[in-house]
Amino acid sequence: MTQTQWSLVFEAERSIGAAAAAAAAGVGEVDGNEFGGGKAVIFAYGPDADALYRVMEPGLRALPFRPAHVVLRYGEPAADVVSERVEL
Rank of each mutant, 00 (worst) to 15 (best):
F35S: 02
V70T: 15
V30T: 14
E13S: 11
R66W: 03
H69K: 12
S83E: 10
A78F: 14
A23C: 10
P58S: 05
D80L: 04
A62W: 02
G38A: 03
R61I: 04
F10V: 14
V71C: 10
A23N: 06
Q3M: 11
V41T: 15
E29T: 08
M56G: 01
D50I: 06
D31N: 15
L60R: 03
N33W: 04
F65Q: 13
G26V: 09
A62H: 05
G36Q: 02
Y74Q: 07
A79M: 03
R61M: 01
I16C: 02
E13L: 10
A51E: 15
L52M: 12
R85I: 09
L52I: 09
H69M: 13
A79K: 04
I42R: 02
G28D: 01
E13V: 09
G32A: 01
S15A: 10
R61E: 05
A12D: 01
A68F: 04
Q5A: 11
D31S: 12
L8N: 08
H69F: 12
G17M: 04
A18V: 11
E29A: 13
Q5I: 05
V55P: 06
T4Y: 12
S15V: 12
E57G: 00
T4E: 14
D80T: 15
G32I: 06
E13M: 12
S83T: 13
E84G: 03
D48K: 12
V71H: 09
E57T: 00
H69N: 08
V30W: 12
M1L: 07
M1R: 06
I42T: 04
L72R: 09
V9E: 00
P67C: 01
G46C: 10
E34Y: 02
A20V: 15
D48C: 11
R85E: 15
H69Y: 15
A25E: 12
F65C: 01
P47H: 07
V82L: 08
P58Y: 02
A23H: 09
A19I: 01
L88I: 07
E11G: 08
A62I: 00
R61F: 00
A25M: 12
V41N: 08
I42L: 15
K39V: 02
P67H: 02
A22V: 08
E76G: 09
A79C: 01
G32V: 06
G75S: 08
V70G: 13
V55G: 05
